[in-house]
Structures are given as C-alpha cells and as structure tokens.
Design a protein around this nucleic acid. Sequence first.
RNA 1: GUGGCUGUAGCUCAGUCGGUUAGAGCGCUAGAUUGUGGAUCUAGAGGUCGUGGGUUCAAUUCCCAUCAGCCACCCCA
Length: 414
Amino acid sequence: MASLQPVRGTHDLLPDEMRAHRRVSDIARDAASRYGFDEMATPMFEFSQVFKRTLGDTSDVVTKEMYTFVDKGGDEITLRPENTAGVARSFISEGLAQSVPVKFFYSGPMFRYERPQKGRLRQFHQIGIELIGVDQPQADLEVIACGARVLDDLGVLDTTVLELNTLGDSESRGQYREALVSYFTKYVDALSSDSKERLARNPLRILDSKNERDREIISDAPVFDDYLNQESRNFFTIVRDGLDALEIAYTLNPRLVRGLDYYCHTAFEFTTQALGAQGAVIAGGRYDGLIGMMGGKETPGVGWAGGMERLAMLSDDPSPKPRPVVIVPLGEAASRAGLNLTETLRQGGFRVDMGYSGNLSRRMKRANKLNATATIIIGDEELARDAATVRHMDTGEQEEVPLTSLPDFLAPYR
RNA sequence: GUGGCUGUAGCUCAGUCGGUUAGAGCGCUAGAUUGUGGAUCUAGAGGUCGUGGGUUCAAUUCCCAUCAGCCACCCCA
C-alpha cells in the first residue's frame, strides 16, 4: 500500500463511483421535487451547540462521534454529523416560521467519528427531506411515501422492508420510560453490560438488544402500546391507515427506537438484508420538539435521511459512462481544423473527446477505449475537400461528410 | 470503543517449511500494422511483499507494535 493513505473512513470517489452517487442524488432530488420538496443546503459545520443541544446528551452521535474543533476565533465548531439540526437552525435563523409549511430536500457529506465498516464511513453522504410546520399525520405519510418513491425509482424498493413504530408524544414516552426503568432495574444484574449502560442513558434502547439473555428479559417487559395515550394512538392509527390506503407495505417493529432525542410519534426505517449489519438505507421520523428545543417557536417537523453510499451499493447499477464522439486529426493542418471542429461540436451539445497522439491506429484505439459512438477522421485528403471521414464505431461503416454538415449528420449521437 | 480475520504489481490472486534475480492472469506501454479500433502474437514497464521495530549469519516468510480494510458487537445512513 502506498504511504499516502486517505484518512481512515474517508474515501475517494473516482468517476465510476461518483456517477453512481450522482445517480442516487439526481433520482432522489427529482422524486422529492414531485412531492414539493425544494433543494437547499446548510453549511457543513455549525457551532457545536447546534448539535449538542438537540441530538441529546445520551446519544452516541454527540457523546463520542462528533468531529469538533476550536477555530482561530475561539469558537467551538462541529462538522455536521447529520443535517436535521442544521436545517432546524436554518429555519430559525432565516425566519422561516413566516413561510410555514416549508419542504426541503438536501444532499451532502456528513461526518461521524466511528469505526469504519462496510456501509459505515467517517465521511459519508446523505440525501434527506424535511417537512416543517405541519402537525397532521398527513405530513408523515407524504414523507414516508416520498422515501418509498425514491427507493422505487432507484429500483431497490423490493429489496427493502419498511419498519414502522411510534414513539408517542412526550407524555406517553415519559410514562413508558419510567415503567421500563423500574422493570429492568429488577434484572440489572442479569443484563448485559451494554444494556446496563443503556438503562441509565436510554432505556428504550434495551428493547433492541441482540444479547440472548437480554432478549429473555425483554420478552416480559412492559409494552409501549399499554402506555400510549389516546392522542398518540389516534395519530399512529391515521399513519397506518394512510399507508394501507397508499398500498405501502410495512411491518410494525416495536423495538425500533430512534437514537436522537428529538424524535416523537412516527419512527420508520427502510432496511435491507443485503448490506450486512448496516441495514438502514433510509430512516427518519417526526421531531415536533426540536425547533422549540433550539429556541425557536414551537414548530413540528417530519423527515428522513438516506445514506448515499448504502443506496449506491444496493442498487449497484453503474450508470453507463456517456459515450463521446472522438475527433482524430492527422497532421498539423488537420490538428488545427480538428480543434475548431471539436469546439463547434461541443458548443452544439455533443460530448467530444480527442485522439491526441500517435498514428491513426493508436488514435483509433483511444477512440475505442473511450467507447466512442463515432470517430471523425480528418487527414489531408479530407481537409482538401473540407470534409471528414466519419466512422460509426458500432457497425464499422464509414463515409465522408462535409465539415459544415457534421453537426446535423451526427445528431443521433448528441 | 470491544472482539476476530486479513494486508504480495493499478486489479484479482499464487508463492516463499527463513536462503541469491518474488510469479500468473487481467490491465497498462510499445511493436507486428508510417490512413483505420475491438481479435491475435511479440516485447516492455510496473513491487522498499502495508509501515516500524525485534529475533537471526540471513526476514516478504517467525515475533511484537502500528496503520488500513473486512466481519461481528456497538451505533446508525
């Protein structure tokens, strides 16, 4: 291995991979736009408080995964680990409470100091949408439907499962939390060390433990359904009925818990088995308390984020490299004519590349490697007649065409 | 952050029970073909055997550390 390695958990996106990413964000942006979400962007870093105050002191994202530094002005800055907090901050800074409801799409890099794994990087890329200012469950439905649409357009919907849960409102969740703590406290000694930790920090998390002994204890734990108040129950029912009406299949997963503190009511994840342990490709939920928590006017919101690397891996449809027309000039006079022609064709909307050097055979090889649709050969013979030889690379047929009519002649290859 | 596996050419991998010049296929460069690509043939370039240290007359090989990747935990997109 070369001594110049990229920083752990970061990755170069060479053209093939970049194209796969571009495809994911293009398809997502387009789908989101049909649901009324407009693209926007927030800075890649914020004051650390933006994340600390909102993500919750118990979340791993805040406690150990943030890239934080003090800048030259003495401000404590954090590279965004996710984008919902940034969007919420922007919503407040920009006074967008005036223009509620607001619907945003974004895509860009996020940073988390984690142990890298397949589908888990330190710099990774997310697409996402946020719908701010609507407290009706119709907003949740629109957001989930949009996620399903993105996956479908990417051609991966049928390799994923939509898992759904409700976190209830804060009253319901508070009571359930108490019930869980008192239940699990009885079994502390039997719990795994991870779960002991969770008991103190985020007891709901225990429900999702993979430890076998934990699972046994969990099987008799209080059920959230018994603690949901009427309002939370109604909300969830409308979401479920709506999904049925939209014919979006889902499975209830009462163990589905959000890591970040600001979530309430609807929580969902589109997951896949195809990516190993990192199975969530799109995940989100409702975050009614977030904007108020940040100091803005109480404003509800719903949204999701999707991992572009994971989505790209799942759909492994390497969108084909676009095929150019290749100009092959022979001789000095032809080089000059070729340069002009290249520019003319590019201006006319063609993708044009060059056979730069060597004899005709070498230049043809380059054209072939570029997977050219057509090669335009200009030598002294053609030049004398103000023409060029066009070779159709797929059929091997070729013919002479006057220079001036090339754009029309090549139109099928534009 | 924890545990395990792995690291030989641009890529996929062989090999060295510690011993002189480390191999293959693909790819790359050039020639056969001074105006014709894909196929074939020929030649060539490319490796501090991830990095640092230790043991040894001798280390790519054994040991330790370190870095990176992969798998699981954890967490999440």
